[in-house]
Nucleic acid binder design. Sequence first.
DNA 1: GTCTATAGAATGATAGAC
DNA 2: GTCTATCATTCTATAGAC
Lengths: 203, 203
Amino acid sequence: MPAGRAVKPARARVVPRRLGSVPYSAAKTRTITTALALFAEHGVGGTSLQMIADAIGVTKAAVYHQFKTKEEIVLAAAELELVKLQAALDSAEAEAGRPRALDALLTKVIDLTVEGRRMVSALHGDPVMVRLLAKHEPFRQLMDRLYCLLTGDRPGTEARVRAALLSAAIRGVVIHPLVMDLDDDTLRSELQRVARRLVHLPD
Amino acid sequence: MPAGRAVKPARARVVPRRLGSVPYSAAKTRTITTALALFAEHGVGGTSLQMIADAIGVTKAAVYHQFKTKEEIVLAAAELELVKLQAALDSAEAEAGRPRALDALLTKVIDLTVEGRRMVSALHGDPVMVRLLAKHEPFRQLMDRLYCLLTGDRPGTEARVRAALLSAAIRGVVIHPLVMDLDDDTLRSELQRVARRLVHLPD
DNA sequence: GTCTATAGAATGATAGAC
DNA sequence: GTCTATCATTCTATAGAC
């Protein structure tokens, strides 16, 4: 039997709007995935609706038919990646006891990050995206859940620094020039190894 | 007496154009510092010359009198921060033996990063800046020197991942939401401590 | 869903006076 | 060094036909 209760999500009182609960049409999905790829390459601010329309092979007006503003496209592109994080948090929080939850979280987050390494800079590096997501309630709830799992309850200074370091390291490594030539499998296993050692680092 | 020779900089054959060797006029300096602050807040792509001019209190034409293009301003703003890294590398490389060089480098880089934490996202997160610096030879030479010190000669996969993790972690922590409320002194000492433990992590 | 056409604002950049 | 005035281009966004 499990050693403890399932980990309770942070801010449980706030009714969370579930990400990805409304499915997109085929045309919308095509727009989102194309936009995300362009965001990763040129940044959000450097990607115009004209570029997105050209990449799809339609006109700007056709894109505006699906999304009223550019901001909507940016958010939809972000959510495409964030639903994966949401699923990872769900299954981690369902684990019995914090050690198991943390371990499950690490495994999934590292897998996701390596798998989507081309999109990481567009999501967490781009200043326009960062500013937009900071005002985005579903995103903030996800981050609260993530940080709660990483730091535990009532974290002190050291625990917060360590959690920040861990999440910054995972994100930062996969887009680092020093490991750009490494294939996904190698990068993933190396990262899984060193992340574990970081978590269990003695004081 | 020192235990070893001074660490040799990477790519010694390439004659490096020294950063910050040409001093700026007062008006130019004012423009650069103003621009850098705006880049940090709105991103490079989200900062127009109009915004820079307004923040200084002059017209666009006055700004264009000092810099021919926006790209020149972006590069100058980047160099303002990079000269500090250059100085840190200089003194670290002058240390006798790799362990001492690495230790000196860590101390200075962490100090610099914490001190300039508001500018970190503009320099290393912004996609426009990253793309521009990637084509910028003096910047690439600096990074070569940095990575050479971090990984040692002929680094294997694990050493590269570890070096990438270290540099990504330092950059990423100082802008992380979890430590945003920490003051500079606390963050610096915590970071110095955990960075050392990372460097001396057993295999 | 996609198109043509266009409005209205902002952008990077330049010419020339003071 | 700073200004006014301007140009060509691009941008987000909309109207209305098919």
